[in-house]
Design a protein around this nucleic acid. Structure first.
Length: 878
DNA sequence: TCGCGCACGC
DNA sequence: GACGTACGTGCGCGAG
């Protein structure tokens, strides 16, 4: 067997890892992210390369022999952050535990050590693999030396062989030196020749091979400026070449034999892993179930590519996968359909399915049971081909979401592999991602889709059993799944937008923004990019000498709460605030909305994500219709553009009043809070009366504001710190507010204590409809993590139950509208409100039905209250 | 392409 | 006493 030497560029890789990963620290406050990243890479190398010899090279110190040539070498570099430098010794300790040699040499860099060792090894007939984050290393590539360069952080490497280099970079390994000599390298402060970048350098080298030859034929080089620069900076070019050339004859006092590697002892390593808090690596090493399956070997699958659809194919119980690429299913094409039942697995080409009467009959037959992944997407996709799917009895996406809402890797392959059955490749593996996403050849596509349908079919019973165990079967079957269909219809229906209104507002805003901009530049005494906080900061806090109140990672904070405190100190401030407000309207709401209006229908079709939030709320994207402005009049006018889609119809909006606090009164069973809601007084005034011990008439607007903030804080689970920020008061005062609140509402206090205990005991909290949220960090020794988990424990049942209630109300209302044969239809849901459109004649009926459905969908100890309004636009429905 | 700062809603 | 703050989406900037 050939010997295999793996050489790792310690410095380069640990830097990469440090910047690629969030700044994790373990429970002792020691930063470990770079070591962690390096270790994952190391483990991967050991597994993939199976080295017989291994060595990690480090840079020795500040100065190297290269500094004698050029004292500015690596000049202008940022100092290594202490969070990183403290990780070097840890890494070396870890390497020792692995039994892996590490080495550094005064005056030389890791590159030189690697260059020298790889040469020696090659001469002894070794196979060599070098791993680095630095492309300079590519000069070492030859038939026996492969160089892996990390890309995109550290999770992937690109393997460079001589042929791959020629294909990718169009030059040979040796020419890397010449390439760098010409183009320079900013990070190492290597000058190169000005005006020569990768493109030009490659062109020159393809023609002349080396810079020596380039200069020998300088008169032939085309381009006056280029020739001039080459001439002027000739010395720099040659010096650069010297600097980037790796020394392959370094005076190292380590031999290849010293790098001999035998398999590491888990017992040696596990101690350090434990100390560092590398739980996942520990699990992996000890062979426990690991989250990421390294390689999945898939069983063979038999499936038929359907040529003609017949009713006989269907048994009445099947899994069906409508495959679409691209994220917007309102627009994306169906790539193909997978169908699996007890008898067979099929791939059905899209054209065949949508033209087939047998397929439509099957899809629309309520008695034919279907399992799907993402019922809403499936519904919408088929609706676009005039097929109204019915009989969906299982949705794997929603099932998985209910089992654990924190899971964000949600597709059939990922879910099935978590359920212990790897039955399909990941979508990313099959389709690629980002710009490179594409549909593979038919054979690959059809197999993938058939596999997914197969996995869906196979795993459904196990997921149903888990839901049953959690007492969540009803939540899926009677709440989320029917809701998915309603949401799908709402999305497909869309909401009509009066584009001309938006455009008129845009014209007006444009002018006002231009004026403000000019005034601000005038006051600042210079022009700059007003949209860049990074540029605005120094203008305000250095040039104009205003007080810097808060800092961010990247400089001064210029956030609204900071600027508001400076409002009276300089007339530029209110103008900036106004500019920001109007700029937001222009970019996000005018331009942003216009971009997503369907050209043919003038409608907007948002997408609700029903399997995302940790609390059970929906979210809305493309566009987000859940954050259309309302608080400030200026922004609220945006709502004028949302209008009914038919003549003589109106927009009808209904929202719950204080639903979260009512839910809190209910689950905390707090007498005072219950009484407050039963008397139907303004809850914030009521709270103010209690907290400040005053009569109703004595409650000032300021008292009410503070009481409101405390109520708000309780509902959203913010801390005393959060409340203090909100009210602009010291934290101590905020804390005393909260304490007084708890004195008044002891039931609430009791609930907060109990729910945290419950979370500790079970590991999760739940809503009134048994939605769960797991809180593993509730037992963390880290104060922050633990506190956050505790507040989440208090908050999630409140927010989540409120979400449950509105969801159920939507089902009830939908049914009632059908029952009453009304034309009115739901269009939007915004967490505690529903927006409908309806013919004018139905207004009276809606005034009765909508609040009644919403208020009575569940029975709590306190009444639910719904306010409603209607008008010619969403704006007017207030 | 990604993280950040900022801003909008509930 | 720590330390940084509910749940989301989207914009423009600026570094890689």
């Amino acid at each position: 067997m050939t010997n295999k030497l793996v050489l790792m560029d310690g410095n380069s890789l640990i830097y990469r890892a440090f910047f690629a990963l969030p700044l994790l620290n373990n429970d002792k406050g020691v930063y470990t992210n770079a070591v962690y990243g390096f270790t994952t890479m190391l483990l991967r190398m050991l597994e993939e390369e199976k080295p017989t010899h291994m060595l990690v090279a480090f840079d020795a110190g500040k100065t190297t022999f290269r500094h004698a040539t050029y004292k500015e070498y690596k000049g202008g570099r940022q100092k290594t952050p202490s969070e990183l430098s403290e990780q070097f010794p840890i890494l070396k300790e870890l390497l020792t535990a692995f039994g892996i040699k590490h080495y550094q040499l005064e005056q030389y860099e890791a590159d030189d050590i690697i260059g020298t060792l790889s040469k020696q090894a090659r001469d002894k007939g070794f196979d060599v693999t070098v791993i680095s984050g630095d492309k300079d290393m590519l000069q070492l590539v030859d038939e026996t030396v492969t160089v892996n360069v990390t890309k995109k952080g550290i999770s992937e490497v690109e393997k460079y062989t001589p042929s791959y280099m020629l294909e990718k970079m169009e030059i040979t390994p040796k020419q890397i030196i010449d390439l760098k000599a010409l183009m320079g390298d900013n990070s190492d402060n290597i000058p190169g020749v000005p005006g020569v970048g990768e493109k030009t350098a490659t062109k020159l080298l393809k023609q002349y091979e080396t810079i020596e030859e380039v200069y020998a034929h300088l008169d032939e080089v085309s381009g006056k400026k280029l020739k001039e620069n080459l001439e002027t900076y000739k010395a720099d070019a040659f010096m650069s070449k010297e600097l980037v050339t790796i020394n392959r004859e370094s005076p190292i006092d380590v031999t290849i034999d010293d790098a001999k590697y035998t398999e590491y002892q888990p017992s040696e390593v596990s101690g350090i892993f434990k100390e560092l808090g590398f739980q996942s690596l520990l699990n992996k090493m000890t062979g426990e179930e690991s989250v990421e399956e390294a390689t999945v070997s898939l069983d063979e699958i038999d499936y038929t590519i359907v040529e003609e659809i017949s009713a006989a194919m269907f048994t009445g119980k099947e899994a069906v996968v409508i495959e679409m690429l691209g994220e917007n299913y309102h627009q994306a094409a169906i790539e193909g359909i997978g169908l699996v039942n007890d008898n067979a697995a099929y791939f059905i080409p899209t054209e065949l399915a949508i033209k087939s009467a047998a397929f439509k009959d099957w899809a629309e037959d309520e008695s034919k049971k279907k399992s799907v992944f993402d019922a809403k997407k499936t519904l919408v996709a088929l609706l676009r081909h005039d097929i109204h799917i019915k009989g969906i009895t299982f949705d794997m996406l929603l099932a998985s979401y209910l089992l654990d809402p924190s899971e964000n890797n949600l597709d059939i392959p990922a879910i099935s592999s978590r359920m212990g059955k790897a039955m399909a490749k990941s979508d990313e593996e099959v389709y690629g991602k980002g710009a490179k996403q594409k549909v593979p050849e038919t054979a690959v596509l059809s197999e993938h889709i058939a596999r997914k349908a197969n996995a869906l079919y196979a795993i459904q019973p196990e997921m149903e059993a888990l839901l049953e165990e959690n007492e969540q079967a009803d939540l899926l079957l009677d709440l989320e799944m029917p809701l998915a269909l309603i949401l799908g219809e709402m999305e497909s229906q869309g909401v009509l937008v009066d584009k001309s209104r938006l455009e008129e507002m845009g014209v007006d805003l444009k002018e006002r923004l231009a004026n403000l901009e000019a005034e601000i530049y005038d006051l600042a005494g210079e022009e700059f990019n007003l949209n860049s906080p990074k540029q605005l900061g120094p203008i305000l806090f250095e040039k104009l000498g205003l007080r810097a109140i808060k800092k961010t990672k990247t400089g001064y904070s210029t956030a609204a709460d900071v600027l508001e405190q400076l409002e009276n100190e300089h007339e530029i401030i209110p103008k900036i605030l106004m500019y920001r407000q109007l700029g937001k309207l222009q970019s996000t709401y005018i331009e942003g909305l216009l971009k997503v209006v369907n050209k043919d229908t003038s409608k907007i079709h948002t997408r609700y994500n029903q399997a995302l939030t940790q609390t059970g709320r929906l979210s809305s994207i493309d566009p987000n219709l859940q954050n259309i402005p309302i608080r400030l009049e200026e922004g609220r006018k945006i709502r004028r553009a949302f209008v009914p889609s038919e003549k003589d119809w109106i927009m009808f909006a209904a929202d719950y009043s204080q639903i979260e606090l009512r839910v809190l009164a209910h689950i905390a069973n707090d007498e005072k809070l219950i009484a407050a809601f039963k008397s139907d007084l303004d809850i914030h005034t009521q709270t103010a009366m209690e907290v400040f011990h005053v009569e109703k008439d004595e409650v000032t607007s300021n008292m009410r504001r503070q009481a409101k903030a405390v109520n708000f804080g309780i509902v959203y689970g913010i801390s005393d710190y959060g409340l203090s920020q909100n009210l602009g008061i010291p934290r101590k005062e905020a804390k005393s507010f909260i304490d007084r609140y708890f004195d008044i509402y002891p039931g609430v206090k009791q609930y907060m204590e109990d729910i945290v205990q419950e979370a500790k005991q079970h590991g999760y909290v739940k809503t009134i409809m048994n939605r769960r949220r797991y809180l593993p960090e509730i037992t963390s020794r880290n104060f922050n993590l633990r506190s956050f988990a505790e507040r989440t424990a208090m908050n999630t049942p409140i927010q989540g139950s409120a979400a449950d209630i509105l969801k159920k109300a939507m089902l009830d209302l939908d049914e009632k509208l059908k029952e009453e044969k009304l034309q009115a239809r739901m269009l939007l849901q915004v967490h505690d409100e529903l927006i409908l459109e309806a013919p004018k004649e139905e207004i009276e009926k809606l005034k009765e039905i909508v609040p009644a459905m919403m208020e009575n969908t569940v029975e709590l100890i306190v009444p639910l209250k719904v306010d409603y309004a209607y008008g010619d636009s969403w704006f007017d429905a207030k």
